[in-house]
Structure formats: C-alpha cells, structure tokens
C-alpha cells in the first residue's frame, strides 16, 4: 500500500517541482518491453500507441518486442528495459527488482482467468482430467495462464505434463495456442482468457473452432512493471498517461483496440496468489 500512497503523493507535485521534472523527462528514452500477454502482432496499432505514449508523457518511448516472456523478464531485471508488460508469473519471480506501474482493467476488473480450451467439435471432453493421453498446447513456459495454471492443476492431481499428456508443446504465444487447438494439432490448450476473448472479438473464425472447457478463478492481470531504478518523474509521467487513457479520445480508441477498460495502480499483493502457486508447483 505504501507504493500507492507514493504515487498519489507524486500526483500532488507543485508547479515548481513539475518544471524540474519536465527537465528530467525531456528527451528521456523510455524502453518498454512487450510480451505476447496481449495480441502483439499489430504493428500499425503499436506505432499509434507508441506515439500516443510519447506525446502525452513527453518521453521518447520505444517498444521492444520479444517472443518469449523470459527474454523480456531478463532484460528488465538487467536494467536493459525501463518498463515491461509482463505476465504476473515472471513478475512475482523478480518482484524485488520491479515495481508495478499500472494494471490493466479487463471487463472492469484488474483480473483475468486462465482458459482451458478444446476443439469445438470435441464434445466428449468434459473436464481437464479427460485430456489424459491427449496432445496439449501450452503458450509460454513463463506464462501464468498458459503454463503455470495447468501445471498447477496437474500438480494437484499428482501428475506431471509428461506423464499425463501423450504429447505437449509450447507455442510461445496465447494466440497460437488457440490456433493449435482450432487446427486440431493439439487436443487441448491453456490460454489467457483475456487473449481468447479479444480474439473472439476480432478473429471469431479462429475461436469459433474452440470451446472453453474450464475457467480458472480470477488472478491479477499481467501488469506494466518498471525497473527499480527508473527515475520517479519518469514513472509518474508514464502512470499519468496510463491512468488518463480512458478519459481522452485517442486513449479510449487505443483501449478499445486492446479490449481493455483502462489502467489502475496496483501492487505486489494482487499477485501474491500467483507467488504462492509457484511455490507450490515448483517448490521455489
């Protein structure tokens, strides 16, 4: 909670202090790492978003995209990135070096679910247990919804993926998990509910070939995190832009494309259940 108070204090800066902050901000090159926690394959949209963030914050924002969570997580831990949109799982594993900057709101809540999906034509599978001996698609090994949660389910059953499934593989992306299940390559898969719902809106032809078998309880939505050493003025400026997005026209349009309702402040406590689950499943 002390972080939220700090953010509020930042918001109450006087005009004299603001002028000095502007000096720091001016020309600051902010590198934001993006992971496939959302549909990151929309170049034109990302450019619009980048320009929006730069103009509103006064920072020189650049996006860095990597295909795995792990690369982004390592880079921000190693200070090569300033901000990253990470899954809750890698965040909790490096939370001592990272601060939660903003948490997206999906359907009005800063939470999401892990979906277990099967082929739409597969009426026989009634629960996760029925996937025994089948082919299963995980998204990223460091994804909560696409990997940790199903492994948690298996852990509760006292099984490992290698024992339980005939074959399992990683697609390194939530969207591709949906494609793998839709094409029949995998019999089942684990995917971020947010990505599945967004896909259902913009590419219903893919999701229509899949069926949601089970939804996990709500967990903290993948947050924007800042490296520990990021100047406060910069972090604050960026937070203001995120929090204000839903209040202005272009921001609202960007949120519409992201299928998000806005950004709110957050802290580690929102992700404590994920941390607990890692400890349970992986023993670390």
């Amino acid at each position: 909670m002390h972080r939220r108070a700090f953010v509020l204090a930042l918001a109450a800066f006087g005009t004299s202090r603001w002028a000095r902050a502007a000096d720091v901000l001016n020309g600051f090159e902010l590198r934001i790492g993006l992971t496939p926690v959302f549909l990151d394959d929309q170049a034109a949209f990302l450019n619009r978003w980048r320009i929006y963030l730069s103009e509103r914050s006064g920072l020189r924002v650049s996006f860095v995209q990597r295909s795995s969570y792990r690369e982004i997580a390592e880079q921000i831990s190693g200070q090569a990135l300033d901000v990253a949109w990470l899954c809750g799982y890698p965040y909790v594993m490096a939370q001592e070096r990272l601060n939660v900057l903003a948490v997206p709101l999906h359907l009005g809540r800063p939470e999401y679910h892990s979906y277990l999906i099967v082929g739409a034509d597969d009426a026989a599978t009634a629960g996760f247990e029925d996937l025994a001996g089948k082919v299963f698609a995980f998204s990223d090994p460091n994804s909560f919804s696409g990997s940790l949660y199903p492994r948690f389910l298996l852990h509760r059953m006292g099984r490992s993926p290698e024992q339980f499934f005939r074959r399992s593989f990683f697609t390194w992306s939530h969207r591709k998990v949906v494609e793998a299940v839709a094409s029949g390559l995998a019999d089942g898969g684990a995917v971020a509910g947010y990505v599945w719902e967004t896909l259902a809106r913009i590419h219903p032809e893919i999701t229509v070939a899949t069926r949601v078998l089970a939804r996990s309880p709500a967990y903290g939505f993948p947050p924007f995190v800042a490296r520990a050493g990021l100047p406060r003025e910069v972090a604050m400026a960026l937070q203001q832009v995120f929090f204000g997005m839903r209040a202005d026209g272009e921001g609202a349009r960007l949120l519409e494309t992201l299928n998000l309702d806005g950004f709110v402040p957050g802290d580690f406590s929102m992700y404590q259940p994920i941390r607990d689950m890692v400890r349970m499943v992986e023993g670390r």
């Binding site: 082919v135 005939r166 074959r167 094409s183 029949g184 390559l185 995998a186």
Partner: peptide, 8 residues
C-alpha cells in the same frame, strides 16, 4: 492436417 494425422 492434424486431424487426419494426429500428433504422436
């Protein structure tokens, strides 16, 4: 054609 040629 994964449905005709299932993995594994």
């Amino acid at each position: 054609r994964p449905r005709e040629h299932p993995v594994g």
